[in-house]
Every structure is written in C-alpha cells, then in structure tokens.
C-alpha cells in the first residue's frame, strides 16, 4: 500500500468512523485540536490501522504524531521497516 493510499484510507476512517466532516480532513489538520478526536479515539484509530495493515502498533509509536499526515507517515515508515 502506497503512502498516498494510506492517507486516503485514514481520511475515510476519519469521515466514516469518527464523523469528521470531509472538508476538514487535510494533511495538516491536527487530530485533537482541529478534528476533535480524543485519546480514546486515537486508540480506536490505531486499532483500525492495525486491522488494515495486519501489523501490531503500540500507542507510543504514535506519540509524536499530531496531524493526519504524521499518522500516514508513521504507518508508512513502520510498514517499510517491516517489509
């Protein structure tokens, strides 16, 4: 899965699962401040990404991720490290 496909998939999760208005989801949108996610949502999102990529992530893997693009980058990097 390419980095761009990952981003699109994360975007569709945010819209479908977390009720974020589609026009608010941009690469630079901050998860907590702009998209109104909370820490439980973050855990739920990580679980979704695990199901998607068949990998195991720890919440700490995403500690420094603040924006949607950060999340895509993190997942992309971890998939590449695994491959």
């Amino acid at each position: 899965m390419s980095r761009d496909e990952l981003y699109q998939q994360i975007k569709s999760y945010l819209v479908d699962v977390f009720e974020v208005p589609a026009d608010k989801v941009t690469p630079d949108a901050r998860l907590y401040e702009d998209l109104d996610l909370d820490s439980i949502d973050a855990v739920d999102l990580i679980v979704k990404l695990q199901d998607l990529t068949d990998q195991k992530f720890k919440p700490d893997d995403f500690k420094s991720a603040r924006t949607v693009a950060d999340v895509a980058d993190r997942v992309d990097a971890m998939m590449k490290a695994q491959a």
Partner: peptide
C-alpha cells in the same frame, strides 16, 4: 453503529 459513532 461502531462505538466511536455511538459515543458521539
């Protein structure tokens, strides 16, 4: 719904 939607 899934839980995130149900919570909202």
């Amino acid at each position: 719904h899934g839980r995130p939607l149900a919570a909202r």
